[in-house]
């Protein structure tokens, strides 16, 4: 067993875990943060995207031990005091989600995109989402939501 410590959504946590524990398992099963989802076993669907030290990362492809000491943000840490972040609000406004399963990963990934590129073209948004699969929306309203949030966040 191994002791790991990190900051998750602003709170310091320390847990003793099996060294094989993936970050996504750590979040879901040890911290009960079940907003981060698992949709595949090959690191492709992006349902598990979180931020590690401000960068998007697939939590299914990292060990909890690898993020020792890091600052982790999950979907549960995005809204503040119950108010949706502009990105979350834009997904709602533009119907960028249906079943909701890929949504946390989409939101986390989109937030990282805007850090790198605050004013992306539609093509750049679509290309960035290469690592996030949605089966419900046809992506159209996700792109619309991200563009709307980008505009809001720039202003």
């Amino acid at each position: 067993m191994l002791t790991v410590s990190m900051t998750v959504n602003g709170k310091e946590v320390t847990k003793t875990v099996d060294p094989r524990t993936l970050l996504v398992t750590f979040l879901r099963e040890h911290l009960n943060l079940t907003g981060t989802h698992v949709g595949c076993d090959t690191s492709q669907c992006g349902a598990c995207v979180v931020h590690v030290n401000g960068q998007s990362a697939k939590a299914c492809t990292m060990l909890a031990a690898q993020v020792e000491g890091a600052d982790v943000t999950t979907i549960e840490g995005v809204a503040k005091n119950g108010d949706l972040h502009p990105m979350q609000a834009a997904f709602k406004e533009h119907h960028g989600l249906q079943c909701g399963y890929c949504t946390p990963g989409m939101v986390m990934s989109a937030l990282d995109l805007l850090k790198h590129n605050p004013d992306p073209s539609d093509e750049e948004v679509r290309h960035w989402l290469e690592g996030n699969i949605c089966r419900c929306t046809g992506y159209q309203n996700i792109v619309k939501a991200i563009q709307s949030a980008a505009q809001e966040m720039r202003s």
């Binding site: 099963e29 079940t34 989802h37 995005v78 809204a79 997904f91 709602k92 119907h95 399963y101 946390p104």
Partner: peptide, 21 residues
């Protein structure tokens, strides 16, 4: 009308079967 169900999905508070223990 904007969807009622979105708030929980957007904040990571959906309850899918694997979320239940």
């Amino acid at each position: 009308v904007k969807r009622k169900e979105d708030y929980r999905f957007l904040t990571g508070k959906g309850h899918y079967t694997d979320d239940i223990n």
